[in-house]
């Protein structure tokens, strides 16, 4: 096939799949939560309620797009765009199958870390520009939480980088031909998973929005499609983190019998379901507890993990 055409198709697929998947995820999450909570969930619009997301989209597009008069307008509008843009950009370095990747960067891991740090700005700026006390508290929590969890997220995933000897995500997957990194890097896997939940601000780490405390936290003042972008951004974040976990620890597209892309999809799907299950099961820790766990337990563990991995890799070289 013409390589240019191939790349255009890849870009198109990579752009459209996460966006549409995020919409379906809204339905999936509501149905799964309902299943685990002994109720029905959305089951009226279309078969099994599948078109619920479409109905939600139509509604959200036609809602009044209101900007509070006291808000900082430019930043207020910019904030939801940042989250969607950073998450979508990160998908560029995700290899869904061998050579099915938009940009096969040799620093793919760093690119991911850099953009997820940029994503924090979205939440902080949203909280700040809303000029409302609840949003401010949510934004403050978000910046503190994400800064501290980003540190050990980076450190945790360095174990896989050391073992694979490359920052390139495709190389990391290929290095797992014999054994998935979840086995030798189990501690790193757990740490990265926890940091990943914190990064996507989902329960039990949803402190920036903490419904029962801060009403909606950083996006309390948002409505219409701007709110919708935070919403979609969060779900795409879930997909992204699931993709990263799959790539770094669960052997990416590797697997017997089935085509590479299918294996990748299955692993990502199971991880997403696990994210939702966590939301159904766990309470929310307090802000200060979260911070002290992050700095006092997670960070030292990540450092130890990296040190031991490095030492072993050196010793057996």
């Amino acid at each position: 096939m013409n390589p240019t055409l191939y790349y255009i198709i890849v870009v198109f697929v990579v752009l459209m799949v996460p966006l549409n998947l995020a919409a379906i995820l809204i339905w999936l999450e509501r149905r799964l939560l309902a299943l685990w909570q002994d109720r029905y969930g959305p089951n009226r619009v279309g078969p099994f309620g599948l078109l619920q997301s479409v109905a939600d989209m139509v509604k959200i597009f036609f809602k009044e797009d209101w900007i509070p008069p006291f808000a900082d307008k430019v930043v207020f509008v910019l904030a939801p765009a940042i989250i969607v843009v950073t998450v979508l950009l990160t998908f560029a370095v995700i290899p869904f199958a061998p050579s099915f990747v938009v940009a096969n960067l040799n620093i793919g891991v760093l690119f991911f870390l850099g953009l997820s740090s940029l994503g924090v700005y979205s939440v902080v700026l949203a909280g700040w520009s809303s000029d409302s006390k609840y949003s401010l508290l949510g934004g403050m929590r978000a910046s503190a939480q994400m800064l501290s969890y980003e540190v050990f997220m980076g450190l945790a995933m360095m174990g896989t980088v050391v073992m694979a000897g490359s920052f390139n995500l495709s190389d990391i997957v290929e290095a797992q031909r014999h054994v998935w990194f979840v086995v030798p890097q189990f501690l790193g896997f757990v740490l990265f998973f926890i940091a990943g939940i914190a990064e996507t601000r989902r329960l039990p780490f949803d402190l920036p929005e903490a419904e029962s405390e801060l009403v909606a936290g950083f996006h309390a003042e948002y409505s219409g499609m701007k709110f919708g972008m935070f919403f979609v951004g969060e779900y795409m974040g879930v997909i992204l983190i699931s993709c990263m976990i799959t790539l770094l620890y669960l052997g990416g597209w590797l697997g017997p019998w089935l085509p590479a892309g299918v294996w990748f999809a299955i692993k990502v799907f199971l991880l997403i379901c696990f994210f939702i299950l966590l939301r159904a099961a766990l309470p929310r820790p307090r802000f200060d507890q979260l911070m002290s766990w992050g700095w006092k337990i997670m960070l030292p563990l990540a450092l130890v993990n990296l040190l031991v991995t490095g030492a072993l890799v050196l010793a057996f070289k």
Binding site: L33, W36, Q37, D38, R39, L203, P204, D206, A210, S212, R279, A280, A281, L282, P283, R284, P285
Partner: peptide, 16 residues
């Protein structure tokens, strides 16, 4: 109360 500390599901079981 479980809902207030962020646990989402028990309230549905209890109401059932």
């Amino acid at each position: 109360f479980a809902q207030d500390v962020g646990q989402m599901s028990p309230v549905f079981y209890c109401f059932n």
